[in-house]
Amino acid sequence: MNMTGVEGIVLLGAIGLIMIGLAGLFMSNNVFRMVLALVILESGANLFLILAGFHGLGIAPIFLSNHAISDAGHMMNDPIPQALVLTAIVIGVGVQALALALILKIKAHYNTLDMSEIRQQMEYDLAKNNDVTLPASAQSPDSLVRSKVICQAEQTQPDHIQAKADVQQIGGSVNG
C-alpha cells in the first residue's frame, strides 16, 4: 500500500488511537478514564474501518443527478464501510452510556473511582454476603481489608465536597 498518501497518515492515526486507547485501558486505574480510553479505542477502530472504503480520488456515494449514474459510480468511495461505521458508532454510544450510569452508581456508593479500591471493596462485600473468607486472589489478610474499609468510611467526611464536584463533573462532561 501507499503509506505516503492521505490514507497512510490516517491509517497511522487510527492505529495510534487504538494503541493509546488500549494502553489507557490497561494502565489507568480510574474507571472514568478507562471509559474515556474505551471511547478513544472505539474511534480508532471506526477510523480503521472507514478507511477500508477510502479511494484515492473518491467522492461521496450520493447520486446528484439521474443521468450520471454510470460515470459517478466509478468515482465513489465504498459506501458499505460508511454504513457499518454509522452502526458501530451508535453501538458505542449505547455501551458508553451504560458504563457511565454504572460508574455514577458505584461512585455514589463506594465514593471512589479507583478500580483497584472498588474491586477490593466488592470482593469484601461479596465475601461478607456469602459468609466466606476472602479468596486468596485478593492477596491481603481479612483484617487489612476490613481496616481499609473502615478508613474509607472515616475519610468520607472531608471527601464529601470533592465527591459532589466529581459527580457534577461527570454529568457535565456527558451533557457537553
Binding site: 487504538i18 453501538i91 462485600d125
Partner: peptide
C-alpha cells in the same frame, strides 16, 4: 447488595467492549 452486581457488570462491560472493538477490527 446491588453494588456488587454493578461493579461486576462494569468490569464485564469494559472487558466485553474491548473484545467487541477487537472483533470489529477483525471484521475490518
Amino acid at each position: 447488595h446491588p453494588v456488587v452486581a454493578w461493579v461486576a457488570s462494569l468490569r464485564y462491560l469494559l472487558l466485553g467492549s474491548v473484545g467487541s472493538v477487537m472483533m470489529l477490527l477483525g471484521i475490518a
